[in-house]
Design a protein around this nucleic acid. Structure first.
Lengths: 227, 227
DNA sequence: ACCTCAAAAATGTGATCACGATTTTACGCC
DNA sequence: GGCGTAAAATCGTGATCACATTTTTGAGGT
């Protein structure tokens, strides 16, 4: 009990969204932003109580997250927890992110509008502001917003789902690593150059910058895991 | 009611496997082998009755399959069905399969043993036999066995999961297309050359043959969708 | 103080019931 | 006979209960 993380739940974003979808979104956001650390154990009833719902919709949300490997059932006692990353698994995450995210950026670039570019610049400013304030959580949030604002344009639901799954899996560990490094050493992002490429319509360059951005971030995590 | 597909359930492979895992495996196998056609609607209670279990474990299995986009909830009436493939989605499936499966084959090749090569040859013989008999279902089954016998060696659980998800999504449509083409025009597989490359230890060639195998099969589906 | 072990609390799993919405069925009307 | 409409069946969702297993707790003895 009493882990700080886990978003406070509005849990009523929409009346026609089912409860288990709301629970899922809340949990997913918490995981992506790294608000629940690797190894942390969770439980259906505890979650249900925190969210003031019955255990039932929580079970369905959790089952979905297990399918995405964002949660796991410990084989020993069948209890629920946030997975820890082995080096093997981190390498797979790295490879897969470099498959899908440059492609999503490339596809997104083809649908870009001036409005979205403004929003992307906004995200990047919030990211920079968080960096200078030493606000790791703000950094995580802004970085996520930036990437998926672009990915959402791609009209590629399968790729988008893959990317979400990969972020769900890397979020908790990423937050720990970045928290340890401090915001000073956080990846010098390629967002500015990427935005420039978006403005000039150089789609290939967008893909390339995204590849480098992903690579650098994951490289930091790999070093942290081995070191 | 009364669709021929859906495997007859042993549904008791192991006593320590939970019921919803058994339900999931049964449904997943049926989908991968294309025994349930695209657009087919299913229901929790019907499945539960067919399997002689309560709707509860079925709900969890289904929720998992929805997360993998192997099933979907129709937005209009929130009822369950097997998704149909748009051209957009099929292209994404094609791309993703060509990312992950050659890599899995490459990794698997590094752990290959003589025993597994024998089993792979067996799978390929069953595949050829099915082809000559015009047995599309046998072809689907043997082809699946061949691919995942190799992939299972890779010790890459994330990639393996990705591949399974992709096969879950393509299975139903693939079965329809191949059934329409007849076994005569079925893809001239690269399995033989791939096995040769395994035997000579040419890992790069294994990757390349797998890429071609996947590409050709998906190309057939793409033509069928457009034509 | 520290270990031991039994009682209590908590956990995931599965079954059953209730509810509102949608689909299907079937009856009566034209 | 064909068609619209009301009744019945079926759907997914959520809550609640029961159960076996595991974890935590706490009291007792050394």
């Amino acid at each position: 009990m009493g882990y700080p993380g886990l978003n406070q739940f509005p849990l009523s974003m929409d009346d026609d969204t089912s409860i288990h979808d709301q629970v899922y979104e809340a949990l997913a956001e918490s995981l992506i932003q790294g608000q629940i650390p690797p190894g942390k154990s969770v439980s259906l009833r505890t979650l249900a109580n925190e969210l003031n719902v019955s255990p039932m919709p929580v079970r369905e949300a959790v089952r979905r997250l297990i399918a995405q490997k964002a949660l796991e059932l410990q084989p020993s006692n069948k209890r629920l927890r946030v997975p820890s990353l082995s080096e093997n698994r981190l390498l797979q995450l790295m490879t897969a992110r470099q498959w899908v995210e440059p492609e999503l950026a490339f596809l997104g670039a083809q649908k870009i509008t001036r409005d979205v570019i403004v929003e992307l610049k906004n995200d990047d400013e919030r990211l920079m502001a968080a960096l200078s304030k030493g606000d790791v959580d703000g950094y995580m949030k802004a970085n996520y917003a930036f990437h998926f604002r672009l990915y959402n344009l791609a009209e590629a639901d399968l790729f988008l789902d893959m990317a979400r799954t990969l972020w769900l899996q890397s979020g908790p560990f990423m937050r720990v690593v970045f928290g340890r490094l401090g915001t000073v050493q956080l990846p010098q992002d390629h967002h500015q150059e990427l935005i420039k490429a978006l403005e000039t319509g150089d789609h290939a360059a967008v893909r390339q910058h995204m590849a480098e951005d992903v690579h650098e971030g994951m490289e930091l995590m790999l070093e942290a895991l081995k070191g």
